[in-house]
């Protein structure tokens, strides 16, 4: 049976293989999206009747799933799906500060109007006008109510360029938190490996501090990957976490440049496996570039880390070029 979606005045039959998101956009609905792969939750909508499919609810908090929230970019309904109008509830926040902390990387501090309950390493959806994007939380509730994001400014990026230029006091919307990339208590002696590229460092910073704050006693190794040695940021803070105990290790890995103490040159996956040839019993966190994250996830698993002990957030961005919007053509079955 072909899928059919209804939302407000919109009533259309999906084409074979078409997602609910593609159908909604074809029908002229204004639904935000970014990754179109179920990773950012920017497109989330609520089904009031019908089945969006289990794939479309993967990664959503159980409470959201129960209420019918789903990700239209991952939904290929086979029956009729009635979708509620309007976006998911959000809280308001003010941009408190935007600081350049690396090459084309800004730290954005947000003051939410209401306290957000989250674990460092999870991500939020930032809402600005009709754009919604996922950003990971580098901060911790233990540091206060303010949220800290690290944002790479993409040359053509709508949200990232807007954020980089935003004046203090500017209002944005926030949703979340989401994601399972965070420290879990229960095994304080378990060794932790944190590997990230670029602003993938944001959640890892949050996780490393959180682990220590919660009394983690096992070794923690953080490997930060960048294209070249100029791309590292937060260097002083991370070096400051290395103490005499040898329990915290900080390694930089660049694709090109001269190797030196604490700086490895080469492919991030190769370097990681060379430094950590056996990961049996380890807990692994991987964040940043989807290619790197997926390659590392597979290799860390093959080197002995249990699949349930690997948490990964691939920072999927919108595809280039954005899919063309077809003219609105509401079709009634």
């Amino acid at each position: 049976m072909t899928g059919r979606i209804r939302r407000g005045n919109l009533d259309l039959v999906l084409e074979p293989g078409e997602t609910a998101l593609e159908g909604l956009l074809r029908g002229g609905a204004a639904v935000p999206s970014s990754c179109r792969a179920g990773a950012c939750q920017a497109c989330m909508l609520r089904a009031v009747s019908g089945d969006p499919g289990s794939l479309a609810q993967q990664g959503l908090a159980p409470a959201l799933r129960e209420q019918g929230w789903f990700l239209p970019c991952m939904s290929r309904p086979t029956g009729e799906l009635v979708i509620q109008e309007g976006p998911p509830p959000a809280i308001a926040a003010s941009i408190a500060e935007v600081t350049e902390i690396g090459p084309a990387i800004v730290r954005v501090r947000l003051e939410p109007d209401e306290e957000l309950s989250y674990r460092p390493g999870q991500y939020v959806q930032l809402i600005q006008g009709d754009q919604v994007r996922a950003y990971s939380l580098a901060s911790s509730p233990a540091e206060g109510r303010a949220l800290e994001l690290h944002v790479r400014v993409h040359r053509q990026g709508r949200m990232s360029r807007w954020l980089a230029a935003a004046a203090p006091g500017t209002r944005v919307g926030l949703r979340g938190p989401a994601g399972a990339c965070f420290y879990t208590e229960g095994r304080p002696e378990q060794p932790l490996l944190l590997v990230g590229t670029g602003t993938g460092l944001a959640p890892l910073r949050g996780i490393a501090h959180d682990a220590r704050r919660r009394g983690h006693t096992g070794p923690i190794a953080l490997i930060h990957g960048a294209r070249d040695p100029a791309g590292f940021y937060l260097v002083d803070e991370l070096k400051g976490m290395v103490d005499g105990s040898g329990n915290f290790r900080y390694v930089q890995c660049a694709m090109s440049g001269e190797p030196s103490e604490g700086l490895e040159i080469g492919d991030l996956t190769q370097v990681t496996l060379r430094l950590f040839p056996s990961l049996k019993g380890w807990r692994v966190f991987l964040c940043g570039s989807p290619d790197r994250v997926n390659a590392l996830k597979k290799q860390c698993f093959l080197r002995g880390a249990g699949l349930k002990d690997i948490s990964a957030d691939a920072f999927l961005t919108a595809e280039m070029p954005p899919p063309p919007l077809r003219t609105p053509a509401n079709r009634t079955a």
């Binding site: 093959l302 249990g306 699949l307």
Partner: peptide, 26 residues
């Protein structure tokens, strides 16, 4: 769950099988 990890790892390390089991969504 423990068996799946061991089994999956063996399959992925097998050149004959790996291409069929290599899924980005692990």
């Amino acid at each position: 769950d423990a068996a799946v990890d061991i089994f999956y790892r063996k399959v992925m390390a097998d050149d004959l099988l790996a291409p069929f089991f290599d899924d980005v969504d692990m």
